[in-house]
Write a protein that binds this DNA or RNA. Structure first.
Length: 424
RNA sequence: GCGGGCGUCGCCAAGUGGUUAAGGCAGCGGCUUGUGGCGCCGCUAUUCGGGGGUUCGAAUCCCCUCGCUCGCCCCA
Protein backbone atom coordinates (compact mmCIF):
# COMPACT_ATOMS: atom_id res chain seq x y z
CA UNK A 1 0.00 0.00 0.00
CA UNK A 2 1.41 3.36 -0.98
CA UNK A 3 0.87 6.70 0.68
CA UNK A 4 -1.23 7.95 -2.21
CA UNK A 5 -4.81 7.15 -3.00
CA UNK A 6 -7.40 8.59 -5.31
CA UNK A 7 -9.13 11.66 -3.93
CA UNK A 8 -12.55 11.12 -2.41
CA UNK A 9 -15.16 10.58 -5.06
CA UNK A 10 -12.59 9.88 -7.78
CA UNK A 11 -12.21 6.40 -9.21
CA UNK A 12 -9.61 4.54 -11.23
CA UNK A 13 -10.90 2.45 -14.09
CA UNK A 14 -8.85 -0.73 -14.11
CA UNK A 15 -8.45 -3.07 -17.08
CA UNK A 16 -11.35 -5.23 -15.91
CA UNK A 17 -13.55 -2.12 -16.14
CA UNK A 18 -12.18 -0.55 -19.30
CA UNK A 19 -13.13 -3.56 -21.42
CA UNK A 20 -16.75 -2.94 -20.46
CA UNK A 21 -16.51 0.81 -20.88
CA UNK A 22 -15.08 0.46 -24.36
CA UNK A 23 -17.85 -1.93 -25.29
CA UNK A 24 -20.46 0.62 -24.25
CA UNK A 25 -18.65 3.55 -25.82
CA UNK A 26 -18.29 1.71 -29.11
CA UNK A 27 -21.99 0.89 -29.14
CA UNK A 28 -23.12 4.41 -28.36
CA UNK A 29 -20.96 5.78 -31.17
CA UNK A 30 -22.64 3.43 -33.60
CA UNK A 31 -26.05 4.66 -32.46
CA UNK A 32 -25.07 8.31 -32.70
CA UNK A 33 -23.63 7.83 -36.14
CA UNK A 34 -26.80 6.15 -37.37
CA UNK A 35 -28.83 9.05 -35.98
CA UNK A 36 -26.71 11.54 -37.88
CA UNK A 37 -25.21 13.19 -34.81
CA UNK A 38 -21.86 14.91 -34.79
CA UNK A 39 -19.47 14.91 -31.89
CA UNK A 40 -18.39 18.08 -30.13
CA UNK A 41 -15.61 18.25 -27.54
CA UNK A 42 -15.24 21.16 -25.19
CA UNK A 43 -12.69 21.93 -22.46
CA UNK A 44 -13.12 20.57 -18.96
CA UNK A 45 -12.60 24.03 -17.53
CA UNK A 46 -14.76 27.05 -18.26
CA UNK A 47 -15.38 30.48 -16.81
CA UNK A 48 -17.38 30.04 -13.62
CA UNK A 49 -20.00 32.45 -14.81
CA UNK A 50 -20.95 30.25 -17.75
CA UNK A 51 -22.34 27.73 -15.29
CA UNK A 52 -23.77 30.11 -12.71
CA UNK A 53 -25.71 31.89 -15.46
CA UNK A 54 -26.54 28.82 -17.53
CA UNK A 55 -27.54 26.35 -14.85
CA UNK A 56 -29.00 28.82 -12.39
CA UNK A 57 -27.45 30.57 -9.43
CA UNK A 58 -29.92 29.06 -7.01
CA UNK A 59 -29.49 25.41 -7.99
CA UNK A 60 -27.58 23.04 -5.74
CA UNK A 61 -25.16 22.30 -8.54
CA UNK A 62 -24.04 25.91 -8.71
CA UNK A 63 -24.50 27.01 -5.12
CA UNK A 64 -22.62 24.22 -3.41
CA UNK A 65 -21.26 21.59 -5.76
CA UNK A 66 -18.85 23.31 -8.12
CA UNK A 67 -15.14 22.70 -8.26
CA UNK A 68 -14.05 26.32 -8.66
CA UNK A 69 -10.69 28.00 -8.35
CA UNK A 70 -9.00 31.26 -9.19
CA UNK A 71 -6.27 30.85 -11.79
CA UNK A 72 -2.98 32.73 -12.03
CA UNK A 73 -4.65 35.42 -14.09
CA UNK A 74 -7.21 36.07 -11.37
CA UNK A 75 -10.08 34.52 -13.34
CA UNK A 76 -12.64 32.38 -11.60
CA UNK A 77 -12.62 28.99 -13.32
CA UNK A 78 -14.75 25.90 -12.80
CA UNK A 79 -14.46 22.25 -13.72
CA UNK A 80 -17.61 21.54 -15.70
CA UNK A 81 -20.42 20.09 -13.59
CA UNK A 82 -22.45 19.18 -16.70
CA UNK A 83 -22.13 19.38 -20.46
CA UNK A 84 -24.94 21.51 -21.81
CA UNK A 85 -23.67 24.97 -20.89
CA UNK A 86 -20.27 24.31 -22.45
CA UNK A 87 -21.79 22.97 -25.64
CA UNK A 88 -24.03 26.03 -25.95
CA UNK A 89 -21.01 28.26 -25.40
CA UNK A 90 -19.03 26.47 -28.09
CA UNK A 91 -21.91 26.55 -30.56
CA UNK A 92 -22.28 30.31 -30.05
CA UNK A 93 -18.57 31.06 -30.01
CA UNK A 94 -18.09 29.41 -33.40
CA UNK A 95 -21.32 30.55 -34.98
CA UNK A 96 -22.53 27.02 -35.64
CA UNK A 97 -26.14 28.13 -35.53
CA UNK A 98 -25.57 30.12 -38.73
CA UNK A 99 -25.15 26.79 -40.48
CA UNK A 100 -28.60 25.58 -39.57
CA UNK A 101 -29.86 23.22 -36.89
CA UNK A 102 -27.21 21.31 -34.96
CA UNK A 103 -27.50 17.73 -33.81
CA UNK A 104 -24.58 17.11 -31.49
CA UNK A 105 -23.29 14.64 -28.96
CA UNK A 106 -20.57 14.89 -26.35
CA UNK A 107 -19.02 12.72 -23.69
CA UNK A 108 -16.51 12.89 -20.90
CA UNK A 109 -15.89 13.58 -17.24
CA UNK A 110 -17.95 16.01 -15.17
CA UNK A 111 -17.21 17.23 -11.66
CA UNK A 112 -19.52 17.85 -8.76
CA UNK A 113 -18.41 18.27 -5.16
CA UNK A 114 -20.98 16.04 -3.46
CA UNK A 115 -20.88 13.31 -0.90
CA UNK A 116 -20.19 10.09 -2.83
CA UNK A 117 -22.64 7.21 -2.66
CA UNK A 118 -23.85 4.38 -4.86
CA UNK A 119 -24.14 5.76 -8.39
CA UNK A 120 -22.60 9.07 -7.50
CA UNK A 121 -19.02 10.20 -7.70
CA UNK A 122 -17.32 13.56 -7.69
CA UNK A 123 -15.76 12.88 -11.03
CA UNK A 124 -18.30 11.05 -13.13
CA UNK A 125 -18.88 10.58 -16.82
CA UNK A 126 -21.71 11.57 -19.03
CA UNK A 127 -22.60 11.10 -22.65
CA UNK A 128 -25.14 13.54 -23.90
CA UNK A 129 -27.04 14.68 -26.96
CA UNK A 130 -28.11 18.24 -27.76
CA UNK A 131 -30.33 19.45 -30.60
CA UNK A 132 -30.26 23.18 -31.45
CA UNK A 133 -32.69 24.99 -33.68
CA UNK A 134 -35.32 22.24 -33.74
CA UNK A 135 -38.62 23.17 -32.18
CA UNK A 136 -40.99 20.49 -33.37
CA UNK A 137 -42.26 17.86 -30.93
CA UNK A 138 -40.98 15.28 -33.36
CA UNK A 139 -37.45 16.30 -32.39
CA UNK A 140 -38.36 15.65 -28.77
CA UNK A 141 -39.59 12.20 -29.70
CA UNK A 142 -36.61 11.49 -31.92
CA UNK A 143 -34.17 12.59 -29.25
CA UNK A 144 -35.81 10.37 -26.66
CA UNK A 145 -35.83 7.46 -29.08
CA UNK A 146 -32.07 7.72 -29.55
CA UNK A 147 -31.53 7.25 -25.83
CA UNK A 148 -34.16 4.55 -25.52
CA UNK A 149 -32.92 2.47 -28.45
CA UNK A 150 -29.34 2.65 -27.28
CA UNK A 151 -30.26 1.45 -23.79
CA UNK A 152 -32.40 -1.34 -25.20
CA UNK A 153 -29.60 -2.41 -27.50
CA UNK A 154 -27.33 -2.74 -24.48
CA UNK A 155 -29.71 -5.42 -23.29
CA UNK A 156 -30.86 -3.45 -20.27
CA UNK A 157 -34.14 -4.49 -18.76
CA UNK A 158 -36.34 -2.92 -16.12
CA UNK A 159 -36.04 0.55 -17.57
CA UNK A 160 -38.84 3.05 -17.23
CA UNK A 161 -39.33 6.22 -19.23
CA UNK A 162 -41.02 8.92 -17.19
CA UNK A 163 -42.41 11.95 -18.87
CA UNK A 164 -43.78 15.33 -17.88
CA UNK A 165 -44.41 18.72 -19.34
CA UNK A 166 -43.27 21.82 -17.52
CA UNK A 167 -45.00 24.09 -20.01
CA UNK A 168 -43.67 27.49 -20.99
CA UNK A 169 -41.88 29.77 -18.59
CA UNK A 170 -45.12 31.72 -18.16
CA UNK A 171 -46.97 28.50 -17.29
CA UNK A 172 -44.35 27.63 -14.80
CA UNK A 173 -44.34 31.05 -13.21
CA UNK A 174 -48.11 30.89 -12.85
CA UNK A 175 -47.93 27.51 -11.21
CA UNK A 176 -45.07 28.55 -9.00
CA UNK A 177 -47.12 31.24 -7.28
CA UNK A 178 -50.14 28.95 -6.99
CA UNK A 179 -48.23 26.12 -5.37
CA UNK A 180 -46.31 28.41 -3.05
CA UNK A 181 -49.44 30.01 -1.68
CA UNK A 182 -51.11 26.61 -1.30
CA UNK A 183 -48.09 25.26 0.55
CA UNK A 184 -47.98 28.29 2.77
CA UNK A 185 -51.60 27.66 3.72
CA UNK A 186 -50.68 24.11 4.70
CA UNK A 187 -47.29 24.96 6.15
CA UNK A 188 -47.83 23.40 9.54
CA UNK A 189 -48.81 20.06 8.06
CA UNK A 190 -45.65 19.73 5.98
CA UNK A 191 -42.66 17.73 7.10
CA UNK A 192 -39.51 19.61 7.98
CA UNK A 193 -37.69 18.95 4.70
CA UNK A 194 -40.63 20.16 2.68
CA UNK A 195 -40.93 23.30 4.78
CA UNK A 196 -37.37 24.15 3.88
CA UNK A 197 -37.86 23.35 0.24
CA UNK A 198 -40.90 25.56 0.06
CA UNK A 199 -38.75 28.63 -0.34
CA UNK A 200 -35.68 27.08 -1.86
CA UNK A 201 -37.29 25.03 -4.61
CA UNK A 202 -41.06 24.71 -4.17
CA UNK A 203 -41.67 22.53 -7.23
CA UNK A 204 -39.53 19.85 -5.68
CA UNK A 205 -41.81 19.57 -2.66
CA UNK A 206 -44.01 17.54 -5.01
CA UNK A 207 -41.30 14.92 -5.11
CA UNK A 208 -41.16 14.37 -1.33
CA UNK A 209 -40.57 10.92 0.07
CA UNK A 210 -42.53 11.68 3.23
CA UNK A 211 -45.76 9.65 3.06
CA UNK A 212 -47.98 12.03 5.01
CA UNK A 213 -46.88 14.97 2.89
CA UNK A 214 -47.47 12.84 -0.18
CA UNK A 215 -51.02 12.23 0.89
CA UNK A 216 -51.55 15.89 1.64
CA UNK A 217 -50.28 16.83 -1.79
CA UNK A 218 -53.04 14.88 -3.48
CA UNK A 219 -55.16 17.94 -2.76
CA UNK A 220 -52.59 20.42 -4.02
CA UNK A 221 -52.86 22.24 -7.36
CA UNK A 222 -51.19 20.28 -10.13
CA UNK A 223 -48.66 21.62 -12.56
CA UNK A 224 -50.68 20.46 -15.53
CA UNK A 225 -53.63 22.60 -14.41
CA UNK A 226 -51.48 25.64 -15.03
CA UNK A 227 -50.44 24.69 -18.52
CA UNK A 228 -51.76 26.70 -21.44
CA UNK A 229 -53.78 25.05 -24.19
CA UNK A 230 -50.77 25.15 -26.50
CA UNK A 231 -48.54 23.51 -23.92
CA UNK A 232 -51.10 20.77 -23.32
CA UNK A 233 -51.46 20.16 -27.03
CA UNK A 234 -47.71 19.94 -27.39
CA UNK A 235 -47.53 17.38 -24.62
CA UNK A 236 -50.31 15.35 -26.20
CA UNK A 237 -48.49 15.43 -29.53
CA UNK A 238 -45.33 14.14 -27.91
CA UNK A 239 -47.22 11.24 -26.37
CA UNK A 240 -48.78 10.47 -29.72
CA UNK A 241 -45.36 10.38 -31.38
CA UNK A 242 -43.91 8.11 -28.71
CA UNK A 243 -46.82 5.73 -29.11
CA UNK A 244 -46.18 5.61 -32.83
CA UNK A 245 -42.56 4.79 -32.04
CA UNK A 246 -43.76 2.08 -29.66
CA UNK A 247 -41.72 3.49 -26.81
CA UNK A 248 -43.49 2.79 -23.52
CA UNK A 249 -43.69 5.68 -21.07
CA UNK A 250 -45.41 6.82 -17.92
CA UNK A 251 -46.60 10.29 -17.09
CA UNK A 252 -45.10 11.56 -13.89
CA UNK A 253 -46.68 14.87 -12.90
CA UNK A 254 -44.14 15.29 -10.17
CA UNK A 255 -41.14 15.06 -12.42
CA UNK A 256 -39.43 18.43 -12.18
CA UNK A 257 -35.87 18.54 -13.34
CA UNK A 258 -33.54 20.38 -11.05
CA UNK A 259 -31.77 22.64 -13.49
CA UNK A 260 -33.38 26.01 -14.10
CA UNK A 261 -33.38 25.95 -17.83
CA UNK A 262 -35.95 23.27 -18.62
CA UNK A 263 -39.33 23.96 -20.21
CA UNK A 264 -42.00 21.83 -21.89
CA UNK A 265 -40.63 18.30 -22.21
CA UNK A 266 -38.90 16.82 -19.17
CA UNK A 267 -38.05 13.14 -18.97
CA UNK A 268 -36.04 10.58 -17.10
CA UNK A 269 -35.16 6.99 -17.74
CA UNK A 270 -34.88 5.17 -14.43
CA UNK A 271 -34.04 1.71 -13.25
CA UNK A 272 -35.03 -0.12 -10.11
CA UNK A 273 -31.66 -1.86 -10.08
CA UNK A 274 -29.64 1.21 -9.21
CA UNK A 275 -30.17 1.87 -5.53
CA UNK A 276 -31.20 5.27 -4.45
CA UNK A 277 -29.83 7.20 -7.44
CA UNK A 278 -32.13 5.59 -9.95
CA UNK A 279 -31.88 7.93 -12.93
CA UNK A 280 -29.73 6.64 -15.79
CA UNK A 281 -30.76 9.25 -18.30
CA UNK A 282 -32.29 12.66 -17.79
CA UNK A 283 -33.15 15.44 -20.15
CA UNK A 284 -35.57 17.94 -21.46
CA UNK A 285 -36.21 21.00 -23.55
CA UNK A 286 -34.51 24.30 -22.80
CA UNK A 287 -35.67 26.87 -25.31
CA UNK A 288 -34.32 29.90 -23.50
CA UNK A 289 -30.87 28.79 -22.50
CA UNK A 290 -29.12 29.87 -25.70
CA UNK A 291 -30.57 33.34 -25.39
CA UNK A 292 -29.70 33.43 -21.72
CA UNK A 293 -26.07 32.85 -22.67
CA UNK A 294 -26.07 35.65 -25.20
CA UNK A 295 -27.14 33.92 -28.40
CA UNK A 296 -30.19 34.20 -30.62
CA UNK A 297 -33.46 32.65 -29.47
CA UNK A 298 -32.94 28.99 -30.28
CA UNK A 299 -35.21 26.08 -29.37
CA UNK A 300 -33.07 23.35 -27.89
CA UNK A 301 -33.40 19.97 -26.28
CA UNK A 302 -31.03 17.42 -24.88
CA UNK A 303 -30.31 14.55 -22.51
CA UNK A 304 -27.41 13.09 -20.62
CA UNK A 305 -26.67 9.54 -19.56
CA UNK A 306 -24.56 8.83 -16.47
CA UNK A 307 -21.95 6.31 -17.53
CA UNK A 308 -21.19 4.96 -14.06
CA UNK A 309 -24.86 4.24 -13.47
CA UNK A 310 -25.11 2.65 -16.88
CA UNK A 311 -22.17 0.39 -16.07
CA UNK A 312 -23.90 -0.73 -12.89
CA UNK A 313 -26.84 -1.92 -14.95
CA UNK A 314 -24.83 -3.98 -17.41
CA UNK A 315 -25.30 -7.64 -16.77
CA UNK A 316 -22.35 -8.88 -14.75
CA UNK A 317 -22.44 -12.09 -16.67
CA UNK A 318 -22.14 -10.80 -20.16
CA UNK A 319 -18.66 -11.55 -21.29
CA UNK A 320 -17.16 -8.58 -23.02
CA UNK A 321 -13.57 -9.17 -22.11
CA UNK A 322 -11.30 -8.63 -25.06
CA UNK A 323 -9.86 -12.07 -25.57
CA UNK A 324 -6.77 -12.58 -27.71
CA UNK A 325 -6.88 -15.00 -30.63
CA UNK A 326 -3.71 -16.61 -29.45
CA UNK A 327 -1.36 -16.83 -26.49
CA UNK A 328 2.24 -17.45 -27.48
CA UNK A 329 4.15 -19.82 -25.21
CA UNK A 330 7.87 -19.94 -25.91
CA UNK A 331 11.14 -20.88 -24.26
CA UNK A 332 14.77 -20.91 -25.34
CA UNK A 333 17.06 -18.33 -26.88
CA UNK A 334 16.24 -18.91 -30.54
CA UNK A 335 12.61 -19.57 -29.81
CA UNK A 336 11.91 -16.37 -27.96
CA UNK A 337 13.23 -14.12 -30.69
CA UNK A 338 11.48 -16.21 -33.35
CA UNK A 339 8.25 -15.95 -31.37
CA UNK A 340 8.58 -12.19 -31.21
CA UNK A 341 8.93 -12.06 -35.00
CA UNK A 342 6.01 -14.39 -35.63
CA UNK A 343 3.77 -12.61 -33.13
CA UNK A 344 4.37 -9.33 -34.89
CA UNK A 345 3.56 -10.85 -38.29
CA UNK A 346 0.33 -12.27 -36.94
CA UNK A 347 -0.65 -8.93 -35.48
CA UNK A 348 0.05 -7.23 -38.79
CA UNK A 349 -2.39 -9.67 -40.34
CA UNK A 350 -5.14 -8.66 -37.92
CA UNK A 351 -4.84 -11.14 -35.09
CA UNK A 352 -4.52 -10.31 -31.42
CA UNK A 353 -1.61 -12.16 -29.94
CA UNK A 354 -0.40 -12.14 -26.37
CA UNK A 355 3.28 -12.94 -26.23
CA UNK A 356 4.80 -14.50 -23.13
CA UNK A 357 8.23 -13.07 -22.61
CA UNK A 358 8.91 -14.59 -19.23
CA UNK A 359 10.97 -17.62 -20.27
CA UNK A 360 9.29 -19.29 -17.34
CA UNK A 361 8.62 -23.02 -17.17
CA UNK A 362 6.13 -24.25 -19.74
CA UNK A 363 3.69 -25.14 -17.01
CA UNK A 364 3.63 -21.54 -15.84
CA UNK A 365 3.18 -20.19 -19.30
CA UNK A 366 0.33 -22.56 -19.96
CA UNK A 367 -1.44 -21.45 -16.85
CA UNK A 368 -1.24 -17.88 -18.04
CA UNK A 369 -2.40 -18.94 -21.49
CA UNK A 370 -5.55 -20.36 -19.97
CA UNK A 371 -6.17 -17.36 -17.85
CA UNK A 372 -5.87 -15.07 -20.87
CA UNK A 373 -8.88 -16.92 -22.32
CA UNK A 374 -7.13 -17.04 -25.66
CA UNK A 375 -8.73 -19.36 -28.16
CA UNK A 376 -5.43 -20.81 -29.29
CA UNK A 377 -2.02 -21.37 -27.83
CA UNK A 378 1.08 -21.24 -30.00
CA UNK A 379 4.09 -23.15 -28.78
CA UNK A 380 7.66 -22.57 -29.80
CA UNK A 381 10.41 -24.36 -27.86
CA UNK A 382 13.70 -26.01 -28.66
CA UNK A 383 12.07 -29.06 -30.27
CA UNK A 384 9.97 -26.89 -32.55
CA UNK A 385 12.97 -24.79 -33.50
CA UNK A 386 14.82 -27.95 -34.53
CA UNK A 387 11.90 -29.00 -36.72
CA UNK A 388 11.30 -25.47 -37.96
CA UNK A 389 7.71 -25.61 -36.80
CA UNK A 390 5.19 -23.84 -34.60
CA UNK A 391 2.87 -26.04 -32.57
CA UNK A 392 -0.77 -24.92 -32.27
CA UNK A 393 -3.30 -26.17 -29.77
CA UNK A 394 -6.89 -25.24 -29.25
CA UNK A 395 -7.54 -23.99 -25.74
CA UNK A 396 -11.30 -23.83 -25.62
CA UNK A 397 -13.54 -26.80 -25.31
CA UNK A 398 -16.61 -24.84 -26.37
CA UNK A 399 -15.97 -25.47 -30.04
CA UNK A 400 -16.31 -29.16 -30.79
CA UNK A 401 -14.79 -28.93 -34.23
CA UNK A 402 -11.47 -27.86 -32.79
CA UNK A 403 -11.56 -29.44 -29.37
CA UNK A 404 -8.24 -31.12 -28.52
CA UNK A 405 -6.87 -30.16 -31.90
CA UNK A 406 -3.11 -30.12 -31.97
CA UNK A 407 -1.19 -29.42 -35.14
CA UNK A 408 2.00 -27.87 -36.49
CA UNK A 409 2.86 -25.32 -39.12
CA UNK A 410 6.14 -24.67 -40.80
CA UNK A 411 7.56 -21.42 -39.40
CA UNK A 412 7.44 -19.91 -42.85
CA UNK A 413 3.81 -20.91 -43.37
CA UNK A 414 2.30 -17.85 -41.72
CA UNK A 415 -0.66 -17.89 -44.09
CA UNK A 416 -1.64 -21.40 -43.08
CA UNK A 417 -1.35 -20.45 -39.44
CA UNK A 418 -3.45 -17.34 -39.86
CA UNK A 419 -6.09 -19.31 -41.71
CA UNK A 420 -6.47 -21.73 -38.82
CA UNK A 421 -6.43 -19.04 -36.14
CA UNK A 422 -9.09 -17.07 -37.93
CA UNK A 423 -11.28 -20.10 -38.48
CA UNK A 424 -13.06 -19.49 -35.18
C1' G B 1 -23.55 19.79 5.18
C1' C B 2 -26.27 15.75 8.21
C1' G B 3 -27.16 10.39 9.64
C1' G B 4 -26.07 4.65 9.70
C1' G B 5 -22.41 0.57 8.72
C1' C B 6 -17.29 -0.86 8.13
C1' G B 7 -11.61 -0.71 8.09
C1' U B 8 -6.80 -7.78 9.69
C1' C B 9 -1.24 -9.51 3.41
C1' G B 10 -2.56 -7.44 -3.83
C1' C B 11 -8.00 -9.69 -3.28
C1' C B 12 -11.65 -12.57 -0.09
C1' A B 13 -11.54 -13.38 4.90
C1' A B 14 -11.05 -16.28 10.55
C1' G B 15 -9.92 -14.20 15.06
C1' U B 16 -13.91 -10.20 20.26
C1' G B 17 -8.01 -9.32 26.40
C1' G B 18 -3.13 -14.07 26.97
C1' U B 19 2.75 -17.65 24.40
C1' U B 20 4.66 -18.05 16.94
C1' A B 21 -2.23 -13.42 13.77
C1' A B 22 -6.20 -19.41 10.70
C1' G B 23 -7.64 -20.40 5.73
C1' G B 24 -8.72 -19.49 0.42
C1' C B 25 -7.41 -16.88 -4.26
C1' A B 26 -3.50 -14.55 -6.77
C1' G B 27 2.08 -14.39 -6.80
C1' C B 28 6.93 -16.78 -6.47
C1' G B 29 10.00 -21.41 -6.15
C1' G B 30 10.09 -26.72 -6.67
C1' C B 31 8.29 -31.94 -7.80
C1' U B 32 9.05 -32.37 -13.86
C1' U B 33 14.74 -27.32 -18.28
C1' G B 34 8.86 -29.14 -22.50
C1' U B 35 2.64 -29.03 -22.25
C1' G B 36 -2.30 -26.03 -19.21
C1' G B 37 -7.48 -25.67 -17.75
C1' C B 38 -8.83 -30.18 -12.18
C1' G B 39 -1.97 -32.90 -8.87
C1' C B 40 1.49 -32.41 -4.78
C1' C B 41 5.26 -29.67 -1.60
C1' G B 42 7.28 -25.11 0.07
C1' C B 43 7.62 -19.49 0.56
C1' U B 44 4.89 -14.69 1.18
C1' A B 45 1.45 -9.70 7.55
C1' U B 46 7.27 -8.71 13.96
C1' U B 47 1.57 -6.91 12.32
C1' C B 48 -4.18 -5.87 12.48
C1' G B 49 -6.08 2.27 8.59
C1' G B 50 -3.21 6.10 11.81
C1' G B 51 -2.32 8.39 16.76
C1' G B 52 -3.03 8.33 21.97
C1' G B 53 -4.90 5.85 26.46
C1' U B 54 -6.49 1.55 29.90
C1' U B 55 -3.88 -3.15 31.22
C1' C B 56 1.26 -7.46 33.63
C1' G B 57 -0.62 -8.21 28.57
C1' A B 58 -4.85 -5.48 23.00
C1' A B 59 -6.21 -6.79 16.24
C1' U B 60 -9.61 -7.47 20.29
C1' C B 61 -11.74 -2.22 25.61
C1' C B 62 -11.88 3.63 25.56
C1' C B 63 -10.83 8.49 23.07
C1' C B 64 -9.34 11.17 18.76
C1' U B 65 -8.29 11.07 13.63
C1' C B 66 -8.21 9.36 8.55
C1' G B 67 -10.44 6.45 4.89
C1' C B 68 -14.24 3.44 2.59
C1' U B 69 -19.39 2.48 2.11
C1' C B 70 -24.80 3.16 2.25
C1' G B 71 -28.64 6.78 2.94
C1' C B 72 -30.63 12.18 3.37
C1' C B 73 -30.20 16.61 0.36
C1' C B 74 -29.53 16.95 -4.93
C1' C B 75 -28.59 14.94 -9.52
C1' A B 76 -26.40 11.62 -14.53
Amino acid sequence: MTDFRTLRGMADLLPIHTDRWQFVEDLVRIHFKKAGLQEIRTPLIEATELFSRGIGEATDVVSKEMYSFVDRGDRSCTLRPEGTASVVRAVLQHGLLNQGPQRLWYGGPMFRYERPQAGRQRQFHQIGVEFFGLSSVRSDAELISIAWDFLQDLGLSGLKLELNSLGTFEDRKKYHSRIVSWLEDHYKMLDKDSQERLYKNPLRVLDTKNPTTQKLLEEAPMLKESLSMDSLQRFADLQFALKKLEIPFEINNKLVRGLDYYCHTAFEITSTNLGSQSTVCGGGRYDQLVEELGGPGTPSIGWAIGMERLMMLLDENIDIQNVPNAYFVNRGEDACIQALVIARKLRTLGLTVELDNSQAAFQKQFKRANRSKAKWVLILGENEILKGEVLVKCLTSTNKQFENLETSFDISDIDGLVKLLKSF
